[in-house]
């Protein structure tokens, strides 16, 4: 029976991957905040921040699965297979493990909805993506209450720092989010109206589809207000363009 595995390394792996998962999800949430608040475009591209957010989230999910699997497989603590998905079914530390299960269920919703992002409505995906904040909050509580390393020393520091970083990111996200009507990217170099095309096709002669700008009054006034220089920005992609 698989429950007979008594190697102490499962328990060590559980503790270590729990800590790593917490740090990784702190990174993921922070990077997601950077994407949502339109950071990037000068030194690093915005799409690069987005790609980091997506990639690190996959790594974090892998670590989370290892964390959960080693906990269940290890016979040192009597959790059960059912407590992976259903909260409050663990015999060991019922409430703290249950909180972790809640966090995992929420993350599962966020993860599956992101995998199905092209198939579901974007509004649904965004709504489900808000769950990640609740998931992180419950994960912090789970880390503090059930973690054997998080009561003192370095473990406590890690938990406090992670909670602080995400709390700051949350404040920034909710208070400082760019409003749609205010010209949210007007202060970034991306908004310069230089010709984006590097090909020899004459985009200035072709008709263009404009979104958003049609409701604005005067292009010239906005140009004066933004006031940044129109220096040509190097392309974000290293690949050679025709």
């Amino acid at each position: 029976m698989i429950g007979a595995l008594t190697s102490p390394y499962f328990w060590y792996t559980t503790r270590a991957t729990g800590m790593v998962t917490l740090i990784l999800f702190t990174l993921v949430v922070s990077l997601g905040t950077l994407v949502a608040n339109r950071i990037g475009g000068t030194i690093v591209g915005r799409f690069e921040v987005n790609e980091l957010h997506r990639s690190i989230s996959i790594i974090a999910m892998v670590f989370l699965v290892i964390h959960i699997m080693t906990t269940v497989v290890d016979s040192f603590v009597p959790t059960g297979w059912i407590s992976i998905f259903i909260p409050m079914t663990s015999a060991y530390r019922r409430i703290p493990i249950g909180i972790g299960t809640v966090a995992f269920d929420l993350l599962l919703a966020v993860w599956i909805s992101s995998l199905l992002k092209v198939r579901i409505a974007n509004r649904s995906w965004r709504f489900i993506h808000w769950f990640s904040w609740i998931a992180f909050a419950t994960a912090i509580v789970h880390a503090y209450t059930s973690g054997t390393d998080t009561r003192k020393g370095l473990g406590l520091i890690v938990v406090v720092v992670c909670a602080g970083v995400v709390a700051g990111a949350g404040m920034w996200r909710f208070l400082g989010r760019p409003s749609r009507a205010a010209g949210r990217t007007a202060l970034t170099p991306l908004a310069s109206s230089r010709q984006a095309t590097t090909s020899n096709r004459a985009t200035d002669k072709s008709a263009s589809v404009t979104t958003g700008a049609l409701t604005r009054a005067s292009t010239a006034n906005a140009q004066d207000r933004t006031g940044f220089t129109r220096a040509p920005r190097p392309s974000s992609k290293n690949r050679e363009r025709r």
């Binding site: 095309t197 404009t210 979104t211 958003g212």
Partner: peptide
């Protein structure tokens, strides 16, 4: 759906220009 993130301009500069508010101006040819 577009909220003017500007990622398309970074990823496909051959096709997408961007206006002063960050919204895309896409090549129609």
């Amino acid at each position: 759906l577009c909220d003017g993130f500007g990622h398309c301009h970074e990823l496909a500069p051959e096709l997408v220009n961007i206006d002063e508010w960050g919204y895309p101006i896409i090549e129609v040819t």
